[in-house]
Amino acid sequence: MSCVRSRSVRRVIYTASVVSTSPLMEDGSGFKDFIDETCWTPLNLSYAYSNPNLTEYVISKTLTEEQILSYGTNSDIGELEMVTLPLGVVGGDTFQSYTPLSVALFISSLTNGEFTYQALRFLKELVGKLPIVHIDDVCEAHIFCMEQPSIRGRFLCANSYVSSSEIADYYRKNYPEHHVKQEYLKGPKREIKWGTTKLIEKGFVYKYDTKMILDDCIKCAKKNGDLLTTKNN
């Protein structure tokens, strides 16, 4: 509403979360065959591996994004362009002096952190697999949306959709100096398709693939002293 009152802002870009885009069926019976911008997290379900804080986080993120987008169809506030960018799990390196929580989720199979691993399991069961994106691509996506002559709507921001077991297996194969427990290498084989190309169709180009995202998470964690070298059994 501050943007409306300013009479000078013509576009609002809201950084949203992928927790609002679950492909869960409304009755909780399973997942849809795809995940894209038409998916909204059902709020009437009990989520696996959840706790009150995580459940409230999902509800607040979903309701907030819905409310933000509703302003874009409200003629009473003028021609304000509303854009939401639900981000996947954000990986990559950082200038911060600590490892961001989202990066800690990526490497939870190496650190055995109970909180981060439970959060990863929760997210996997909420959205089927893990949409992931590099922090540099996240920044560029925001700039891209700022620079368009006109843009509005919802755009999922992630360029890979992988299982937690695939992440663990990549680290096991490429970083053998770190131990990966066998339990992290197991998980359901879900065939949910990543169905969104909306940002790409607008002309956006992702620069970081899955390998680059995962490698930069390792680089970040090592730099901040969060990874100890051990031997795989």
Score class of each variant (00 low, 15 high):
112 N>S: 10
183 E>H: 12
21 T>S: 15
220 C>Y: 08
224 N>D: 03
28 G>H: 00
25 M>N: 10
110 L>I: 12
84 T>C: 04
198 K>P: 00
90 V>C: 06
187 G>P: 03
210 T>F: 12
143 I>M: 11
94 T>Y: 03
96 Q>A: 15
177 E>Q: 15
23 P>T: 03
42 P>Q: 06
3 C>R: 00
130 L>A: 07
211 K>C: 09
85 L>R: 00
73 T>Q: 15
160 S>P: 01
233 N>Q: 04
139 C>V: 15
109 S>W: 03
136 D>R: 07
45 L>Q: 04
169 D>M: 06
19 V>C: 13
205 V>S: 12
103 V>Q: 09
114 E>Q: 12
157 C>W: 00
160 S>C: 14
194 W>K: 11
155 F>S: 06
121 R>Y: 06
145 C>T: 03
213 I>Q: 10
181 K>H: 12
18 V>A: 14
167 I>H: 00
130 L>I: 14
181 K>N: 11
192 I>W: 04
154 R>N: 08
101 L>I: 08
65 E>D: 12
125 E>A: 07
211 K>E: 15
141 A>T: 14
179 H>G: 01
119 A>S: 13
228 L>G: 10
42 P>F: 05
209 D>Q: 08
58 V>S: 05
115 F>K: 13
10 R>I: 01
155 F>A: 13
48 A>Q: 13
86 P>W: 01
220 C>I: 07
62 T>L: 11
22 S>G: 05
143 I>F: 02
3 C>Y: 06
98 Y>F: 15
